[in-house]
């Protein structure tokens, strides 16, 4: 019975993901964005059905497992965009080196100022980078990978909603800066938004996202010492 339920959970996750993706592509409504809709619906189903998390995770852990190969896959776009990296090495590295400490420090300091527990401070620290990198960082710094995964998703939704407003408010000249804004603050969700603005913005956003993720993973011991 439990095995059947676990399989049904995997099936439900896949079907909801497929439906949300289709709906979002057709309508473009922000509430049907798979990033927002699928986790909410799946969490709702698990809560309403009183399904224990270990049952839900029994079969769906194969999906989580694929995050490993997905991290390896980042090598291909980085390799393909090596010309852009070379051309804008200065701006890109400035952006990454500034974005990473601002994201980590402001998350931790704000969490501390709002009286959130140490575990929450740690789990918020890597929230602005892409999930596989964030999870790798979380396990190094003694954060909860589960909580970090949730905070990464909330960050993505926040970035989708705030990105447009900030692009209007800030006096930005270059496409480079617009791409970096979205990629550094809102990882994959920001990169998707940047691709809507234009190809150059999209490339810069994905590069900022990937390089920022790698830099944060390598800075993890430093973050652990700080938090």
């Amino acid at each position: 019975m439990e095995n059947l339920l676990a399989f049904a959970c995997l099936l439900l996750t896949l079907v909801l993901y497929w439906l949300a993706k289709k709906l979002y592509r057709r309508t473009g409504n922000w509430w049907s964005a798979p990033l927002l809709a699928v986790p909410l619906l799946v969490i709702g189903a698990v809560v309403v059905g009183h399904i224990p998390y270990h049952t839900y995770f029994q079969d769906t852990h194969w999906l989580s497992w694929l995050l490993g190969p997905a991290t390896v896959a980042f090598a291909i776009p980085i390799y393909e965009q090596r010309q852009v990296i070379r051309k804008h090495a200065l701006s890109l590295s400035c952006g990454v080196l500034v974005a990473m400490p601002v994201a980590v420090l402001s998350s931790v300091w704000l969490a501390r100022a709002f009286g959130l527990s140490e575990l929450l401070q740690k789990s918020l620290a890597p929230r602005s980078i892409s999930t596989p990198f964030a999870l790798a960082t979380a396990s190094t710094i003694g954060a909860s990978p589960d909580l970090t995964a949730v905070f990464v998703v909330i960050t993505g939704v926040a970035g989708m909603l705030l990105g447009e407003v900030m692009l209007m408010l800030l006096p930005l000249r270059s496409r480079l800066a617009k791409g970096a804004l979205l990629g550094a603050a809102a990882h994959g969700a920001g990169t998707a938004k940047a691709n809507e603005l234009g190809a150059e913005e999209g490339v810069v956003a994905s590069l900022t996202m990937m390089l920022g993720g790698i830099a944060t993973v390598f800075a993890a011991p430093l973050i652990a010492w700080f938090v």
């Binding site: 998390y53 999906l63 995050l67």
Partner: peptide, 11 residues
């Protein structure tokens, strides 16, 4: 990739 991290968010 979004599909792969949904199980973690359900946690």
């Amino acid at each position: 990739m979004l599909l792969f991290f949904i199980p973690a968010t359900v946690a």
